[in-house]
Nucleic acid binder design. Structure first.
Lengths: 160, 160
DNA sequence: TCCATATCGTTCAATGTTAAACTATTCGAT
DNA sequence: ATCGAATAGTTTAACATTGAACGATATGGA
C-alpha cells in the first residue's frame, strides 16, 4: 500500500504510518468482532454490555463517555438493547433527568458467555509480539495519543 | 483507562494494548478529520476523492477495495459526490457492467486545496516520534497486522 | 449458440453515527 | 423564591455501513 504522494520524507513517512495504524486497528477490529456479530451483537451493543458488566449500572452519559460515543447515539443503541430485553432503563428518583441503565439477566448471560472468547481472540492477536515489544507498542501509542490530544486547540485554530 | 477484567497477565496486557491501539487510532482520526468535516467533506468522501486524485479514475469496485468499504456503501458515497458535482460516473462502453468514476473540476480543486494541510496535520501528529521510533511503530504494526490477517480462517472456525 | 456462472453496481433493511435543536429537570446566584 | 444557566436524554436530518437479494451484463464451455 504505497503512498502516492510527493511530499517531504517526513510527510510520506507520516502518511504511511497513519495508514498502517488505521489499517491495523481496522483489521483487528473486524476480525475480532466477527464472532460477536455472528452472536447477534453489534460492536456498539457489545461495548455497552461490556461496560455495564464490568463497571456496573451507569447513566447514559457515563456510558457515552466510556465508549466515546455521542449521547444521541446511546439513545439508539440502548433502545435496541431494551427491545431485546438485554438491558433496562430506570429513571433516577433523586435526579429525574438521569436514567440508570443496567443489565437484565439475558444481557448478563450473553455478555458473560461471549467475553472470555473475545479476550482469548484478542490475546491470540497480540501473541505475535514479545513482552518487550508489547511494552514498546504501548509506549509508542501512548506517546502519539497524548501528543495528538495536546495538538487540539492550537492546531485547530491554526489550520482551519 | 484500567481494564476491569480478571484474567491472566497476558490477557490483561492484550486487552490494554487493544484499547490503546483503537483509542490512538480513533483519537488521531477524529482530530485529523475535524478540519475536513468543517470543509464539508465526510471521511468517506475525502477517501474517495483522494483515491481518485492520486490514482486516477477507477470503477467503484476498485475504489471500494482501496478504501476497504462495501460496494453498497460506495454507491451511496458516490451518489453524494455526484450531487455536489465533485465526481462523475461514466458507464464503460466495452464492459457495460462497469462504471468509471472520475473527478470533476470542482472535486479536483477541493481535494487539491485540502490535501496538503491534511498531510501537514498528520506530520505534526507523528512529529512527536523520533525517526527510530517511527520505524519501530511501523514494524510492530506490520507484525500485528500480518498476524491478525493470518488468524482469520482457522481461528474463525475454532471460535465461532 | 446457449446456458451456467461470475462480476458490477443498485437496492433494501437494519443499525450506527453525529451535530444541533429541543424538553425536562436541577442548581446556583441574586 | 425565582430566574438563568447547566445538565440528561430525546429527536431529527443527513450520511455511513454492511450483508443479502437482485438486475444487468459478460464470459467460457458444452
Amino acid at each position: 500500500m504505497p503512498t502516492h504522494y510527493q511530499g517531504s520524507n517526513q510527510q510520506v513517512a507520516a502518511l504511511d504510518l497513519f495508514i498502517k495504524l488505521t489499517r491495523a486497528s481496522e483489521s483487528i477490529l473486524s476480525k475480532l468482532f466477527k464472532p460477536i456479530n455472528d452472536a447477534g451483537l453489534t460492536a456498539s451493543q457489545f461495548g455497552v454490555l461490556e461496560a455495564l458488566y464490568h463497571l456496573g449500572p451507569m447513566c447514559q452519559r457515563e456510558i457515552a463517555s466510556k465508549i466515546l460515543k455521542s449521547t444521541g447515539n446511546l439513545t439508539m443503541v440502548i433502545d435496541n438493547l431494551e427491545k431485546r430485553q438485554l438491558a433496562q432503563r430506570v429513571r433516577d428518583t433523586k435526579d429525574r433527568r438521569m436514567i440508570t441503565v443496567s443489565l437484565l439477566p439475558a444481557g448478563k448471560e450473553l455478555i458473560a458467555s461471549i467475553f472470555p472468547a473475545h479476550v482469548e481472540r484478542l490475546t491470540q492477536a497480540f501473541s505475535v509480539l514479545s513482552t518487550e515489544e508489547t511494552v514498546q507498542l504501548n509506549n509508542l501509542l501512548r506517546k502519539v495519543g497524548h501528543h495528538v490530544a495536546t495538538l487540539s486547540v492550537d492546531r485547530q485554530a491554526l489550520t482551519s
